[in-house]
Simulated scan of single mutants.
Amino acid sequence: MGFHEIRFPTALSFGSVGGPERLTEIVALANGHEERNTPWAHSRRRYDAGIGMRSLDNLAELIAFFEARRGRLYGFRWKDWADHLSCGPSGVPGPGDQVIGFGDGSATEFALTKTYASGGADYVRPITKPVEGSVRVAVDGIEVAEGAGFTVDPTTGLVSLNVTPGSGLVVSAGFAFDVPVRFDTDAIRISAAGFQAGEVPDVPVVELRA
């Protein structure tokens, strides 16, 4: 898929509205009970980029970004201000934040993930767009240095360790990350007069699946 490794202007995304979306299929049975299932293994995030526009200069910046992506043609990075760290929103990512795998004596590559846990259940989300320079990694609780101990591909989220971790050793990571998205429209319609009168443009953005 066409993807530009550029982040949507964070000053504009800060005021956006959006979050995770799930697809649940519900079948009502004759006895009044119901069956629930989902064809989606992972949630999908949607945002409205238009909410963050505060001035005509903001609109000009949005239009330039939209045109450079050719509307829906090319994907881009998006900072979800409510969920962009391996730790809590007010924390600082540390190398022990997220368990991303266990050594088996041969594997050296591990994909970044973030686990959401509540009430004994959890969901493991793949992280494919870490922020370059933000990734910290530990093996068996001991941090290893980027470059000397590991490398990470910021376009895929794949961590490569320079030394094979022993069998059963925990590999963990902390990081900041973006969401891979695209515009979900090929048209932006707004008038300068309407915007100054409080009219907000509708600019939907949707998460891309790998």
Rank of each mutant, 00 (worst) to 15 (best):
M1A: 10
G2S: 12
F3Y: 15
H4M: 04
E5Y: 08
E5I: 01
F8L: 01
A11Q: 02
L12W: 07
F14G: 03
G15R: 10
G15S: 02
G19I: 01
G19H: 03
P20L: 00
E21I: 13
L23H: 10
E25S: 11
I26F: 01
N31C: 14
N37T: 15
N37Y: 15
A41E: 11
R45K: 07
R46H: 08
Y47G: 05
D48C: 05
D48V: 00
G50H: 03
I51S: 00
G52Y: 11
M53L: 13
S55D: 06
S55H: 12
N58F: 12
N58K: 01
A60V: 09
I63V: 09
I63R: 13
A64I: 14
E67L: 00
R72N: 04
G75T: 04
W78D: 06
K79C: 06
D83S: 14
C87M: 14
P93R: 10
G94S: 10
P95K: 09
D97V: 09
D97T: 12
Q98M: 14
Q98F: 14
V99T: 14
G101C: 12
D104V: 02
G105C: 00
A107N: 13
F110D: 15
L112K: 03
T113F: 04
A121P: 04
Y123T: 02
P126W: 00
I127Q: 13
I127W: 06
P130C: 11
P130Q: 05
V131D: 15
E132C: 05
E132Q: 12
G133C: 10
S134Q: 09
S134G: 05
S134W: 08
A145Q: 00
E146A: 14
G147N: 09
A148Y: 01
G149H: 07
L161R: 04
T164H: 00
G166Q: 08
S172I: 12
S172Q: 09
A176H: 15
A176V: 12
F177R: 14
D178A: 10
P180N: 02
P180E: 07
D186W: 00
A187L: 01
I188Y: 10
S191Q: 07
A192Q: 11
A193T: 00
G194Q: 03
F195P: 06
G198L: 11
G198P: 04
E199Y: 08
E199K: 15
V200Y: 02
D202L: 00
D202M: 00
D202N: 11
V203S: 11
P204K: 05
L208E: 06
A210L: 01
A210R: 11
